[in-house]
Simulated assay, not measured.
Amino acid sequence: MLSTDISDRRKKLLEELSVAGRENSNVVVMFHSAVAARMGLGMTEEKALDLLERLGPLTAGDIAQRAGLAPASVSGLIDRLEVKGFVRRTKGTTDRRRVVVEINYEHIAGFGRLFEGLVAGLTELYAGYSDEQLELILDFLRNATRIQRAATADLEGSA
């Protein structure tokens, strides 16, 4: 809850931050929608691939937990990705009864180019900030992500 005693400058900054955050959220969603379409995927499928790329092979339960999806919908998601050739199911290395999902890297090899412009632009943007500023930005992003994840879990729980 905001105090009624905040300065006009802070009030303006908080309003601008809210608008900028919403604009950023919109362009991120639109970018990933465009990437997903280029890959022949739905948005959730593209984000599941991102999880697998960042974290390595995961079980269906791991994907459900990290993506905030219902376990039943993850089975269909994995089926679709497997049919399209993006992932494969394999046996766990320590527990052969356990099934893990891994990326079929041969299939996604050409799609890295879709991110080249974004990565180059962000690299240039980061170069303009000091290490201390980058630490502050990183702290903000991690905390905003934590808050967003909690809000998503609340919505999933109230469905």
Rank of each mutant, 00 (worst) to 15 (best):
R54Y: 09
L136H: 14
S73V: 12
T145V: 02
Y129A: 11
E124I: 10
T152G: 02
L155F: 15
T90M: 10
E102A: 15
L41Y: 00
H107R: 15
L17C: 03
G110Y: 02
D50M: 08
I137T: 07
K11F: 12
E53P: 04
T4E: 15
I6W: 15
L118Q: 08
A20D: 13
R66E: 09
E156G: 02
E23M: 06
A48T: 13
G121P: 01
E156A: 02
T59V: 04
G121Q: 10
L81N: 11
R98M: 14
Y126T: 14
A144D: 09
S18Q: 09
P57F: 08
L69A: 05
G42I: 08
E23D: 06
G117Y: 08
A60F: 14
S75Q: 11
E132F: 02
A159N: 05
A67Y: 10
A34D: 05
A34K: 04
G40D: 02
A127H: 09
R54P: 00
E16H: 04
R54D: 03
I78Q: 05
R66I: 10
E82D: 14
K12M: 10
K91H: 14
A20V: 05
R98L: 08
E116C: 08
S3Y: 10
A109F: 14
H107Y: 04
L77C: 08
L81H: 12
D50V: 06
L17N: 11
L52E: 02
A64R: 07
E16N: 10
E46P: 14
D62Y: 03
F115Y: 15
V83N: 15
V27G: 00
V35Y: 02
F111M: 12
L77Y: 12
A150K: 01
G112Y: 02
L2S: 01
A159H: 03
Q133T: 13
G56M: 04
Q133E: 15
G121M: 01
L134K: 04
